[in-house]
Design a protein around this nucleic acid. Structure first.
Lengths: 211, 211
DNA sequence: TCGTGTGAAGAACTTCACAGCT
DNA sequence: AGCTGTGAAGTTCTTCACACGA
């Protein structure tokens, strides 16, 4: 049943997708919500609820056909299409992402990487990409039809980069800089805040001990 | 009032901390929940609720003393102490993290990086670290008193690495590999799943259009 | 009057429990 | 009998609304 889809559901769908790829590879043809849940450490009822937002994928008494479910999720998540990605910030992290095989495997193609540091502009990466001048952002991203912008610059310059992305018509942003960007709500943003994650972890470690 | 603290509250505390650092740097001595919320795009009531879990930091009619609040949060999050970190997986991402200034700034010191690839073992990073053989994991991490293990290997070997970490007495794990690890509940784990985040973003972009 | 601290209401997400298809 | 799909109950987190102190 269509309705409002919880955001966590979307992330789990992508997880189910991965798991199904493996199950199919190992020759499994059907799978129950119970099994899927056990593999992924998710409650069976959660699996069923997640899938039920998008229609009836399963057969009662039997479970889900792995192939059919995989295709269904691919459809929902738009996995079949590809996305053109640009990275701003040719530091260690930006370069690592540009070379990250997980992205291109998932259909996210890093087409260009920018920096404003003259020492970096023109530099050639492992994968053959050449660092472009941030000044040419709008021109280059329009030429290459970039959909997604990734921010890997220091906190101080992140908002500035975000503004350039917005005015150049980027459709969505992934922000690795440790700041809250102000971005109009109609442009989706996902934050990956590495030091925040370390904080959350070490807090858990500290409080663990007292129990 | 002490009670059960929502996990999102912890992450927000770290965000407040960062913001307070900046406010103090710019000479601000007090701040209201309203102001803090506006800077960070968080509701004022959320800010007050978050802080109230840990006691009464503010003064009615005035707001929060920035310095006092900063110290209070540092206390809660254990920001004053440092943490020793190891990374397993000397690929692009692992190396980028080892050199990531945000971590050491936050008190997370990458003391050692491991790999099992002979071509990589012995390699010297920008920051002087030398890639160690994964075989020596337990010995080296005990010597260096490592608290936190970071997994940056491919999905296939992530569980194996996690098992080594567990049996060597690591206190907490940050997992960048795109798999759900099975880990006893008493060991905290944080996941940073980059391709999942891209999926969530592109899903939002796709559905945006239909509205 | 201004702004906190907090019980109560609300929203979002998860889990239960069971009717109903295969 | 086995397993899905789903309303309803439960849980967790957020927002409201207001008493109260500075």
């Amino acid at each position: 049943m269509e309705g409002k889809i919880p955001k966590p559901t979307i992330k789990r769908l992508a997880v189910y997708y991965r798991c199904l790829e493996n199950l199919i590879k190992s020759g499994k043809e059907t799978v129950s919500s119970q099994e899927l849940g056990t593999y992924l450490n998710i409650k069976a009822s959660q699996v069923r609820k997640d899938l039920s937002y998008f229609g009836e994928f399963g057969k009662r008494g039997i479970g889900y056909q792995t192939r059919r479910l995989l295709d269904g999720i691919a459809e929902i998540l738009g996995i079949k299409r590809t996305w053109n990605v640009c990275i701003v910030g040719a530091g260690n992290l930006g370069i690592a992402l540009a070379n990250y095989p997980g992205l291109s495997k998932g259909g996210y193609h890093v087409k260009v990487i920018f920096d404003n540091n003259p020492a970096k502009i023109g530099m050639k990466l492992q994968n053959g990409l050449i660092v472009e001048d941030l000044k040419n952002f709008e021109k280059v991203t329009k030429e290459k039809e970039i959909h997604i912008g990734v921010i890997t610059v220091p906190a101080e310059s992140a908002q500035q980069v975000a503004d350039i992305m917005l005015s150049s018509g980027i459709k969505g942003i992934i922000n690795f800089a440790p700041v809250k960007l102000s971005i109009p709500k109609k442009i989706p943003v996902e934050e990956i805040d590495i030091s925040l994650t370390f904080r959350a972890l070490s807090f858990q470690i500290s409080t663990q001990k007292n129990q």
